[in-house]
């Protein structure tokens, strides 16, 4: 199941240490006091893949934490796949300038 990896922003072959490190960085960025919903999602995602056994189980049968409704699951997928801001260089901004000048 891809969603936990997408939520945490890590590749599917990440190790236990990499997953934990990423989780800790994210909860610093989204603490429960200021982003409770995001914190909960991040934590659920982490819990579902934090060990090899759990990752295998998620691959086979999902994380078990998913909503029963396919509509909710698709909405969550859309949120995790929502384009992230990409660091563009100055030259790339210049490359986009002609398109932006068109009406």
């Amino acid at each position: 199941m891809l969603i936990p990896y997408l939520l945490l922003g890590i590749s599917s072959d990440a190790t236990d240490a990499e997953i934990r490190s990423r989780y800790l960085a994210l909860v610093k960025q989204y603490p429960p006091e200021s982003a409770p919903e995001r914190f909960q999602r991040i934590t659920e995602a982490y819990e579902s893949i934090r060990s090899q056994r759990r990752r295998i189980s998620a691959r086979l049968f999902g994380t078990g934490a998913e909503s029963e409704s396919y509509a909710d699951q698709l909405a969550l997928l859309a949120e995790t796949l929502t384009p992230r801001r990409r660091r563009a260089t100055l030259q790339e901004l210049f490359d986009m300038e002609p398109q932006c000048l068109k009406k």
């Binding site: 698709l74 909405a75 859309a78 796949l81 384009p83 992230r84 990409r86 563009a88």
Partner: peptide, 22 residues
Amino acid sequence: ASRLPLLWKGPIHIRADVQALT
């Protein structure tokens, strides 16, 4: 967003696409 594609990574139209799938 599609006028500034280099500022994003990922599918720009994902929400509309997912809603259509639903």
